[in-house]
Design a protein around this nucleic acid. Structure first.
Lengths: 153, 153
DNA sequence: TATTGTTATACTCTATAACTATA
DNA sequence: TATAGTTATAGAGTATAACAATA
């Protein structure tokens, strides 16, 4: 653990470098997908449903930083493949709750193997120390993606 | 393939969590762009030209993990805005070298302020220790994005 | 009237296929 | 023949706008 020698990182540099690194990484990741793989948005929606239980289109759209109309398309695809199902909302007739089906939980893993295997092959070239550093950054990146935007509404 | 329980972080978990975190982060980042902002691909191409000097469409496509036809579209947009220029290749009449123009170096920063400012605002909520952890992960993510794929084709 | 969801449409980014020119 | 670039077209992913139903 080396921690004392370096100057404090400049947020500006971090911002610029992180954007570049992530842009390329995501492009590479997307290019590793087989025809039947889930895309990152579908994986995100399924992960939310698995971790947090039933949610509406609007809920999921907010959590995944996209418009409800866009999330509807994502959910429609997942529904057609039987990975999610609709449930009526108990008290509000407008809302529709989506839940993960039994096969959805399984398919979430099965239909992301190509991406995961590419990534694991890449991670296999990392030193344990580097893996730890990468792991430590995940919750931080997660936080960046989940921060509220300036919807001062 | 051995899967012994180890104190080291599991690559499988890292792979899955990193995909989710990055997917959401990139979507969020993209949503912060003003109409005139550069997108992540344009920023990537400009950064390559600035750091590594003149390069061909095919070079840049390879480095940024996209097809030459797609990179051509990126470069055509940048060229139209005067951020890059063409230079004939000294010895190979087929190749065309692209170089960053003087305004290209400046615009690269100016036309990514919205994304950078959103990110810097987000990073302002981080502890110095967290910033260091995030910074440490950037070269690792970069390496993931730059690893050669198994193009056996 | 405000909110949830839907439909229709369009835009952005990247891919595939076919073609031209140079090597 | 092989390689660099171009043109044309298509697909995935997400956005905006207009609308219906419920609150």
């Amino acid at each position: 653990m080396k921690r004392a020698r370096q100057p404090d990182p400049s947020p500006d540099t971090i911002a610029a470098d992180l954007m570049l690194a992530l842009g390329q990484f995501v492009r590479r990741l997307r290019s590793e997908a087989n025809p039947h793989e889930l895309n990152l948005s579908q994986m995100g929606a399924l992960a939310r449903l698995e971790r947090q239980g039933p949610a509406t289109t609007a809920d999921l759209a907010r959590m995944e930083a996209m418009k409800p109309q866009s999330m509807k398309v994502i959910l429609a695809g997942l529904e057609e493949d039987g990975l999610v199902e609709r449930r009526p909302h108990p008290s509000d007739g407008r809302q529709i709750l989506f839940v993960l089906t039994a096969s959805g939980a399984e398919e979430r893993r099965r239909r992301s193997v190509a991406k995961r295997e590419w990534m694991m092959a890449a991670l296999a070239t990392f030193q344990p120390e580097e893996l730890r550093a990468l792991e430590a950054a995940i919750p931080l990146i997660s936080r960046l993606g989940n921060l509220p935007s300036d919807d001062s509404a």
